[in-house]
Write a protein that binds this DNA or RNA. Structure first.
Length: 451
RNA sequence: GCGCAGAUGCCCGAGCGGCCUAAGGGAGCGGCCUGCAAAGCCGUGAUUCGCGGGUUCAAAUCCCGCUCUGCGCUCCA
């Protein structure tokens, strides 16, 4: 069985499943108020790989990822730009999915939208109010954190330590009984969207959205709740607190991934707006970014620079060349190697180890083929290709469509070579290069390829 | 101040107490192959793992302290 690092236990533990053979996963999705950045890219690709791996293992995976389509940031931007908040949310969500497609992130099985769950949120808040777990103030409804016995479980800190703080933030909401209490419902202010509730028009708090949607779709005691390290506290802590206050079992496991780091100013200047996933995809092969993500462990900080992207892009070229070379291999993957893949990935999702294995198989395949051992080559190649597929790396095995004029040049070069007219052959190759093509003289004849 | 994550070659990074004189990718250099290239392959690249102690027959891996980096510390990042 697969083991994952659990935030609550602070160690790698075997994944315990509520229902054997089935895995339920809730991934905190985006608040749609702007374009997704490379941090979102890592976030979605890490869990995309987890999901692909679990499916490959034969598990029945239910993967839920929400869209937070109502939030202060969306409202803020709408007000700044004089637009409707729905317009911002809809457009940003479209851009989100466009980005996910570019980076080959599979769509979740369920995509709950916060605005579709307001009624259920109101219901939850009502129950908590009735139970005395929550209370009303002039600006909203708050959860009484002191009523949650193990509050601070995820943050791994006592309430007192949490309150102490070190930041320069001043605690607002003076009507709160305890500074740690958080808003589940916020009464509407001028120019803000609102929904009706027994206590007055308003909108739900961020933490309330996710707890309601996760429990509604996946049910009590679902297997895995994930997100970025920045969500551990307060977001996940508070989601859990509401479930616990309501007497419900929440997630069994908590998984959090590390951040993307860039060399500060230098990076953003040299790469311009490459922090944005769509812009990055225009300058680099999106698969290069996926490879970069795969090559570092999901909990480690990850360095992204122009150099690391170029590096990964070169590695992708190597993989594409390999895929073309073995496009018609019919052998099956090597069972022992796939077993190793399974072991490596099951150990806290060691995708870097999987990439390692994949590249070793690529070399093994190339070496075997050069040595004329087609069977061994095909098997090693099939192994590498299968691993690439599970990791969500789509390799380009078909080669480029060669236009007639390029084809003609290649033929002329072949003729010149046959006539041992090297000068002419080299000149034609220069012409091909100028036209953006390169030619590789393989054992099966010359192959033209776009540069 | 408290908590979490991290610090490994030129770069990115794996490394789960002995198989680590430390994987894999990229770059460089040398070679094989090639008419020359490209692709592919081989070789070379850290006797060393932020710093200082300690545990152990054995530590990059465990423990303690320190330094530095990122994140979080409560509607709002």
């Amino acid at each position: 069985m697969i083991s994952l690092y659990d935030t609550v236990e602070s160690k790698v533990v075997p994944l315990r499943l509520r229902d054997p053979g089935q895995v339920s996963i809730y991934v905190c999705g985006p608040t749609v108020y702007g374009p997704p950045h490379i941090g979102h890219g890592r976030h979605t690709m890490v869990y995309d790989v987890l999901r692909r791996f679990l499916v490959w293992k034969g598990l029945d995976v239910t993967f839920v990822s929400n869209i937070t389509d109502i939030d202060d940031k969306i409202i803020g931007r709408a007000n700044d730009e004089g637009r409707e908040w729905q317009d911002i949310a809809t457009k940003c969500e479209n851009i989100w999915w466009k980005s996910m497609d570019l980076y080959n992130v599979d769509r979740p099985d369920h995509v709950p939208h916060a605005t579709d769950y307001v009624d259920q949120m109101v219901e939850l808040i009502s129950v908590l109010l009735d139970d005395g777990k929550a209370y009303l103030t002039g600006d909203g409804v708050y959860l009484r954190v002191s009523q949650v016995a193990d509050y601070g479980l995820l943050a791994n800190q006592d309430l007192d330590d949490l309150l102490e703080g070190g930041g320069d933030r001043t605690v607002v909401g003076t009507e709160k009984e305890n500074p740690a209490d958080f808003a589940m419902w916020k009464f509407t202010k001028e120019g803000e969207p609102s929904w009706p509730s027994p206590w007055g028009d308003g909108r739900p708090g961020w933490h309330t959205e996710c707890v309601v949607m996760a429990l509604d779709i996946l049910g009590e005691g679902f297997d895995l709740h994930t997100g970025g390290l920045d969500l551990v506290f307060p977001h996940h802590e508070n989601e859990r607190a509401q479930a616990v206050a309501n007497g419900k079992n929440f997630a069994t496991h908590w998984m959090h991934h590390g951040f993307v780091e860039m060399e500060g100013e230098k990076m953003s200047k040299s790469l311009g707006n490459v922090k944005n996933l769509l812009d990055l995809a225009e300058q680099f092969d999106p698969r290069a970014y996926r490879l970069l993500v795969l090559q570092s462990h999901y909990r480690s900080p990850m360095e992204v620079t122009e150099a690391t992207l170029n590096n990964a892009q070169a590695a992708m070229q190597r993989l594409d060349t390999f895929a073309r070379r073995f496009a018609d291999a019919t052998e099956s993957p090597d069972a022992e190697a796939m077993n190793e893949f399974d072991t490596v990935m099951s150990r806290d999702l060691d995708s870097a180890g999987a990439v390692d294995l994949m590249f070793r198989k690529v070399r093994e395949a190339n070496t075997a083929r050069d040595a004329g051992d087609g069977g061994a080559a095909g098997s090693a190649a099939a192994t590498a290709l299968e691993i690439a597929s599970v990791l969500g790396l789509e390799l380009e095995s078909s080669g480029d469509d060669v236009p007639a004029e390029i084809e003609a040049l290649v033929q002329r070069r072949t003729d010149a070579r046959a006539a041992k007219d090297w000068a002419a052959a080299d000149q034609i190759r220069d012409e091909l290069t100028a036209a953006g093509w390169t030619v590789e003289d393989s054992a099966d004849g010359p192959v033209a390829r776009r540069i």
